[in-house]
């Protein structure tokens, strides 16, 4: 210790650091998807929203020289995508999964098209809170540089959990998601609730994208997401539609992703392709371990087209 050489501890520090750095977009996208799915609809287009959010956030941050205005722009762009999805799905005989895939491609295509001039310029970054100030080890300090959006994401998860549990809004979303007939009997406009839930979900995914381009890795390019939006949608099922579980799932995923580079950096480099597959292997193991042949998926909203 001391001399900046942590040995095997370095792997643990790197995994904690990786969890904090990498998990934020997963948290935001999975919270957004959680909100949407609890209202009874699936939005598979969040990968496209994430990429478009990354592009629009970066572009606006560069033009206005303010990272926060960029985040706002990304949230607005995400809202527009969400509203579009919600509006189209309201029409009769429209499949929400198909629309989601279409919107994913549209979002990525638009982001690539409008993002061309912004690959080269350098936009301002979001600020970080140095929670590792107490440590003399540069590794620990670096691992505990926490971005504001990470804190906001965690707070938001608890807020949404509270919303579902103890507020009228949460109850309305849950009723719409579990039984649209019951909701209609109560006089709730099912389509409007779903529209708003999808729009809010889109806004969160947009913010997740802004984190990618404005903080970590911190620049806009066309390969920036590499499927993180899709993984986050899967995390929601893994988290059993519980917002607080989404945090854990996202952290676990981030930590497992940091395992490969961390192992190689301390000289354990055999089989790095296998250690890179760790997040996916972990997901499979956990899903199999928590599954059951005798009952349906626990916690799934009744109106969801994949579990109906």
């Amino acid at each position: 210790m001391g001399e900046g050489d942590l040995g095997l501890w370095a792997v643990l520090v790197a995994m904690i650091g990786g969890a904090i750095r990498v998990s934020t977009p997963f948290i935001f996208v999975s919270l957004g998807e959680c909100l949407t799915e609890r209202s009874g609809r699936i939005n598979l287009g969040l990968e496209g929203t994430l990429v478009f959010g990354a592009m629009s956030g970066y572009a606006v941050a560069y033009e206005t020289n303010s990272a926060w205005i960029g985040v706002l722009a990304a949230a607005l762009a995400g809202t527009v995508f969400g509203l579009f999805h919600g509006w189209v799905c309201k029409l009769p005989r429209v499949n929400d999964i198909a629309i989601g895939i279409a919107l994913m491609l549209l979002g990525m295509g638009l982001a690539f098209f409008f993002g061309k001039p912004y690959i080269q310029p350098v936009a301002p970054d979001l600020p970080a809170i140095p929670l590792g100030f107490w440590s003399s080890s540069p590794q620990v300090e670096a691992a505990l540089r926490v971005n504001v959006l990470f804190v906001v994401g965690i707070a938001l998860a608890f807020l949404i959990a509270w919303l579902f549990r103890s507020t009228r809004i949460g109850l309305v979303i849950r009723v719409v998601g579990d039984s649209s007939d019951a909701a209609r009997a109560m006089g709730i406009s099912v389509d409007r609730v779903r529209l708003l839930a999808t729009a809010a979900g889109g806004a969160l995914a947009g913010i997740g994208g802004a984190y990618l381009s404005l903080y970590y890795p911190g620049s806009w390019n066309e390969g920036i997401s590499s499927g993180q939006g899709l993984m986050a949608v899967a995390l929601v099922i893994f988290a059993r539609w519980n917002p607080v579980n989404c945090i854990w799932a996202a952290l676990l995923f981030g930590a497992a992703g940091a395992l490969g580079p961390a192992l190689q950096s301390i000289g354990i480099s055999k089989g790095y392709y296998l250690s890179y597959a760790a997040p996916y292997v972990l997901t499979l193991i956990l899903l199999i371990a928590t599954s059951s042949t005798t009952r349906a998926v626990r916690g799934a909203p009744g109106e969801l087209s994949i579990t109906k």
Binding site: A14, S219, G223, S226, Q228, S265
Partner: peptide, 24 residues
């Protein structure tokens, strides 16, 4: 110290690899 990312363009993994090197 070398770290292979396994792909030609993977922004997040490249950033993680760079951080892992700096940590060492």
């Amino acid at each position: 110290q070398v770290i292979f990312t396994g792909e030609w363009s993977l922004a997040v993994k490249e950033a993680e690899a760079t951080n892992a090197l700096a940590d060492q």
